[in-house]
Amino acid sequence: MKMKPVVVEARDLERTYRRDSVSVPAVRGVSLSVREGDYIAVLGLSGSGKSTLLNLLGGIDLPTAGSVHLLGQDTRRLSDRDLTRTRLEHVGFVFQRFHLLPALSAQENVELPMAELGAGRRERTARARELLEYVGLAQRIEHRPGELSGGEMQRVAIARALANRPALVLADEPTGELDVHTGGEIAQLFRKLNADGTTLVVVTHDPALAQPPAAVWEMRDGTIRPRSGE
């Protein structure tokens, strides 16, 4: 069977922070390949380096050593402008605390990355409505974040992440702010996304997000390995 193309690849990844002249290694020697259509769930305790890894994979942060090749490009060799453009066009982010713009409606929040990319108004509106319908919020498109529940806000954030048809969606504890039931619904939505062809990397505590078809990896003290049995 033909191998699917690699979307993002980490090699011998190191990320060390300096705090008050003390070096704190957050990610140590991580190597990982994510191919088109993969669904990777990274589990680990708080402080294990999951979010740092996600930031490195998405080009939000740069490695201290090793490399990240995002769609074949070494993130360390890209200028901030090119890295920003790469994120806009090819990576979708879902955050634990949603980070929607409170001044904008659900539809406008979803339109934001498309507007940044220069899409026309009609195209943006149609795509935003389509995505909101896809995540089950067809009736809430005019509502602002303050008028939505946590689960609804996360659905809007997922729709926003999909806006520019990204090659990769990265989610950092997407159910961290939600109750078990709502978290389960979001996990269901992620499985649907993957089934429809979206490449996903999710870092989480939530076992619901680590259900098949997710390939589960575990992080501990900055290192990563596949969960036994995977």
């Binding site: 402008r81 920003t84 979708g92 982010f93 980070h99 940044e116």
Partner: peptide
């Protein structure tokens, strides 16, 4: 978050 999703400096 805006910078993360691709809004330029």
């Amino acid at each position: 978050a805006l910078r993360a999703i691709g809004v330029t400096r």
